[in-house]
């Protein structure tokens, strides 16, 4: 049992950060919820069509809870969301009051799985590759290898995602058709088949996020290489690899971990554009479709999922930064 006042300073900082994260999440949910109340007053007509009868409109307004004060609706909505219930989609409703709409959760759940699959595969490729490139460019800095890798990284940073994606399609799917340009996966497919289908989207996403991670790793390692204790290690005869692995890396983990988590959060946004390019049935595509048809409950659900992932990853980055800081771990 931890007594108050006896709490480890790291734990205290982590708890504080968690509390702040929870607060941010709550505020974000308020903003996302408020979006539906900011809709213009006649949106029931827009959803149900011009010919909607008065009874249908009243019933629809009642279903959305528009006859209750906003604060009550927010409470109910939050309670629903906590149980995985995002309400029902706007699409599939007719003026006659016939209701063929689907639960938002049924729309979102399979798409979310697909997106997590794509993002997961990308992370598995991108993170080790970025670390390897960052370390080697730091070791052989100012060499031809370093300059080439850096130039490529700088170029990919300043390009829009869809440009990279279309260049890959042009080269690998159109001119030399080795990979499929459409990433239409479904759950019946075997894993190797799915992997081939998502090869191009995963490659585009990797290119998008790898540059930042690699450059930050390189910068963090180079900063440390200039310190006296590294020179000491070298003078006592440690090999290059030993210096990097045993002396530099332990101190570089905090900034590297932060930048990895931050870039995985960036992946969340990049995934939207890339999914649309490759017509991948993921949550990003779903959100874009929902925005086009102004299907607000689906938009809310997608926005909430994106925001929660983003906040969570940033939170993890912060916490890793705190717990890998040796000065906090061993207080005087």
């Amino acid at each position: 049992m931890l007594k108050r006042g006896n709490v480890h300073p790291v734990l205290a900082t982590v708890l504080k950060r968690l509390g702040l994260g929870l607060f941010t999440w709550l505020m974000v949910s308020v903003i996302i919820f408020a979006s539906i109340t900011m809709l213009p007053g006649d949106f029931t007509e827009a959803v149900l069509g011009q010919a909607a009868t008065k009874e249908t409109i009243v019933a629809f307004r009642k279903e959305l809870g528009l006859d209750q004060p906003a604060i009550v609706r927010y409470g109910e909505w939050l309670l629903g969301v906590a149980q995985g219930d995002f309400g029902t989609s706007f699409s599939g409703r007719a003026a006659s009051g016939q209701d063929r709409s689907r639960l938002v959760m049924d729309l979102v759940a399979p798409r979310l799985q697909n997106t997590l699959f794509l993002a997961g595969i990308t992370a598995i490729i991108a993170v080790p590759l970025a670390l390897f490139l960052g370390l080697t460019t730091a070791l052989y800095r100012n060499s031809l290898y370093d300059r080439i890798v850096n130039a490529v990284a700088l170029t990919t940073i300043s390009m829009p995602e869809f440009f990279l994606a279309y260049i890959l399609i042009l080269l690998l799917a159109s001119l030399w058709p080795i990979l499929p340009s459409l990433a239409n996966v479904n759950t019946e497919m075997a894993l190797p088949e799915r992997l081939i289908r998502i090869a191009l989207p995963a490659m585009s996403l990797t290119l998008v996020i790898i540059a930042h991670m690699m450059r930050m790793t390189r910068a963090a390692v180079i900063n440390l290489l200039a310190l006296p204790y590294v020179e000491m290690a070298r003078l006592k005869g440690a090999t290059r690899t030993a210096v990097i692995m045993k002396h530099v890396l332990p101190n570089a983990w905090a900034p590297i971990a932060t930048v990895i988590a931050f870039n995985l959060a960036y992946l969340v946004v990049g995934v939207v554009v890339v999914e649309v390019v490759f017509v991948y049935p993921g949550i990003g595509q779903l959100m874009v479709d929902a925005v086009t048809s102004r299907d607000i409950p689906v938009v809310q659900a997608c926005a909430l999922i994106f925001a929660v992932t983003y906040i969570l990853l940033n939170l993890i980055a912060d916490i890793i930064g705190i717990i890998t800081n040796p000065r906090l771990l061993h207080p005087r």
Partner: peptide, 21 residues
């Protein structure tokens, strides 16, 4: 500003565009 920055801006602008057109 802290709260606004906690939502990725592309997602946030998508949401706002769906509301305001």
């Amino acid at each position: 500003v802290d709260v606004l920055m906690a939502i990725p801006s592309l997602i946030f602008s998508l949401m706002l565009l769906s509301i305001f057109g």
